[in-house]
């Protein structure tokens, strides 16, 4: 059952990304491009996606998930170097290409060679991340 619901979630996610235009890098870069011809679409996508999740988080109170024992732990409160540095690195890559992990996967079948190259590079980056993260901690502790 977990697999079935996960497939359903991935299908909804992919269909949403497709029809919202968020697999089009010009739209994403257009939203980030406040000094150019600004494209507001991404804000509507983000807002539209947050709405059902506001309801969903409310429904998690005093309840258990359908097919497993418990919901995710409450979010941690503390901010750390990893969160900031990682988000900045991600943002630079996102700005450069206009793709983030969800759309990179959703557009794989129509993104051409470039899309496949991006996905492979992204997976390579994910492979390297644990070591680079540990390095970041060491540098931070030494400073």
């Amino acid at each position: 059952m977990r697999g079935l619901f996960a497939f359903l979630a991935g299908s909804l996610f992919g269909t949403g990304l497709l029809i919202s235009g968020m697999t089009d890098t010009t739209r994403v870069q257009g939203w980030l491009d406040v000094f150019g011809n600004w494209d507001p679409t991404l804000a509507f996508v983000m807002g539209g996606a947050i709405l059902p999740m506001l309801v969903a988080w409310r429904l998690t109170r005093n309840r258990a998930p359908l097919v497993v024992d418990r919901f995710p732990a409450p979010p941690r409160a503390e901010l750390d170097r990893r969160l900031i540095v990682g988000s900045v690195l991600f943002g630079v890559g996102w700005g450069l290409a206009g793709l983030c992990p969800g759309p990179a996967m959703a557009s794989l079948s129509y993104g051409g060679v470039g899309g496949i190259v991006f996905l492979i590079a992204m997976i390579a980056g994910m492979f390297a991340a644990p070591k680079l993260g540990a390095q970041l901690d060491r540098v931070a502790n030494a400073a």
């Binding site: 977990r2 619901f5 359903l8 996610f13 919202s20 059902p52 429904l59 998690t60």
Partner: peptide, 24 residues
């Protein structure tokens, strides 16, 4: 375009809600 953005966003949020409420 913004309507498609909103509709797509709702589907994305629905997917996230299914993943959360079913699979936790």
């Amino acid at each position: 375009e913004w309507l498609w953005g909103l509709a797509g966003g709702l589907l994305i949020g629905l997917g996230a809600a299914v993943y959360l409420l079913c699979n936790g």
